[in-house]
Simulated assay, not measured.
Amino acid sequence: MSTSIRSATPDDLPLICAFIRELAEYEKLSHAVRFDEAVLHDHLFGPRPMAEVLIGEVAGEAQGFALFFHNFSTFEGRPGIYLEDLYVRPAARGAGLGKALLVRLAALAVERNCARLEWSVLDWNEPAIGFYRSLGAIPQEQWTVMRVDADALSQLAAGQSASAES
């Protein structure tokens, strides 16, 4: 089967939203999906896009996506690409679409003089971990992902501590 990768357009928003919901279901995180489609549209296609999306097609039909944005490495002194989401519909898995999406992202990273391409993967997702390793990805096991969101983010923004550890 032939695969192709293209940049998303505003007309792809319903498709992107569907892919996000399907990915969340696969990751057992449907309860965490709470985006507003209009806000997502603005962040992807508005005057100051915060992220980009690639659409992967198999035999001319959209079957997956990659949502990514630039980060920056102070040690390298250059930008990088952070892959937030990569998803291929179950019926299209094994057709090479996931690899094609990552190949395109790697090519964009090289074209944009980025130091690296990186992403996170859930610890239990052994098929994905094995796939990523087969492409040369190396787990960064010495790092722990930290997050501040919801009420804790508001408290931090106001200069307040969310816990007694300050």
Rank of each mutant, 00 (worst) to 15 (best):
residue 1 M to E: 08
residue 2 S to L: 10
residue 2 S to W: 10
residue 7 S to D: 14
residue 9 T to P: 00
residue 10 P to E: 03
residue 13 L to W: 03
residue 13 L to P: 06
residue 20 I to R: 06
residue 22 E to G: 05
residue 25 E to N: 11
residue 26 Y to G: 02
residue 30 S to A: 14
residue 31 H to A: 15
residue 33 V to F: 07
residue 33 V to L: 05
residue 35 F to L: 04
residue 40 L to R: 05
residue 43 H to M: 12
residue 45 F to W: 03
residue 46 G to C: 03
residue 47 P to S: 15
residue 48 R to C: 10
residue 51 A to I: 09
residue 52 E to L: 06
residue 57 E to L: 12
residue 63 Q to I: 07
residue 66 A to E: 04
residue 75 F to D: 00
residue 79 P to S: 00
residue 80 G to H: 04
residue 81 I to S: 02
residue 83 L to M: 09
residue 87 Y to V: 03
residue 91 A to M: 11
residue 91 A to T: 14
residue 94 G to K: 13
residue 95 A to W: 08
residue 96 G to T: 10
residue 99 K to F: 01
residue 99 K to E: 13
residue 100 A to N: 01
residue 102 L to G: 12
residue 104 R to L: 06
residue 105 L to A: 11
residue 108 L to A: 03
residue 108 L to S: 09
residue 109 A to Y: 08
residue 110 V to W: 11
residue 110 V to Q: 13
residue 110 V to M: 07
residue 113 N to T: 07
residue 117 L to E: 07
residue 117 L to C: 10
residue 121 V to H: 02
residue 122 L to D: 12
residue 123 D to Y: 02
residue 124 W to D: 01
residue 126 E to P: 03
residue 128 A to T: 12
residue 132 Y to T: 05
residue 133 R to F: 09
residue 134 S to Q: 07
residue 136 G to W: 11
residue 138 I to L: 15
residue 138 I to V: 15
residue 139 P to K: 05
residue 139 P to A: 07
residue 141 E to H: 14
residue 146 M to Y: 15
residue 146 M to V: 10
residue 147 R to M: 06
residue 152 A to V: 00
residue 152 A to S: 05
residue 152 A to L: 12
residue 152 A to F: 04
residue 154 S to P: 00
residue 154 S to E: 14
residue 158 A to Y: 02
residue 161 S to I: 00
